[in-house]
Amino acid sequence: MAETVLETEGLTMRFGGVVAVDGVSLKVRARELRCLIGPNGAGKSTCFKCLCGLLKPTEGRVFLRGEETTGWDPHRIAALGVGIKMQVSSVMDGLSVQENIWMAARRHMDARAATDKAGEVIDRLALGAIARADLGRLAHGERQRVELGLVLAQDPWLVLLDEPAAGMTAEEVARMGDIIREMTRTAAVVVVEHDMQFIRSLASTVTVFHRGRVLVEDHVDRVMADPVVRDVYLGKGA
């Protein structure tokens, strides 16, 4: 069994009277691909933010590679070797693609090595044609791809992606799937996602969130066949 790289213990996040995440315990192993799914408001994005330090959980603990990181600032978590991509594409608009990716690589290597690394990532993601263009002028799909480039350039052992396929064309989604599968060769990948087709194409273990709790955790095909999950998604009988 591969080592556990991400673990939460009774993770709880309350906003006033609302319990967005309620006692979630997760375990993700090295090089595993894990999708977190659930209807709107199920708490998956809030849980995601607790993992990457953007929210401080009300209760519970987070461990990354055995080290407790509960309440750490995002930059300390990222500096451990965790690649993070938020739901809304977030890049340095005024800078070029090369500059953006260089900055991600520079964190853990010197300037010259980072330049080489940026070149490598640009080739890998086929961004060569737009390497000198400012991010602010790129299309949504291209920006998403550059942001994945930022994650790749960090050489992470854990990747956290929040809705990476949102708003992309079918072709771009397919390419995104390939990139994510390739990432699992060196890193565990946790994907928060809405798009069921995309999740099916990734064919991974799925954790279903409902009302802040974990409903089921199983392989995607069995989860899809589960009548309870269907009810939750379609809003029947619950």
Binding site: H75, I84, S90, M92, G94, M103, R106
Partner: peptide
């Protein structure tokens, strides 16, 4: 220098730079 280039990155998008692991 690297410091300056990252400072420009912070001007462009503070949250993103901190998610890359820099203490802004």
């Amino acid at each position: 220098s690297s410091f300056g280039r990252i400072a420009i990155g912070i001007r462009e998008n503070e949250e993103r730079v901190s998610l890359l692991g820099y203490d802004i």
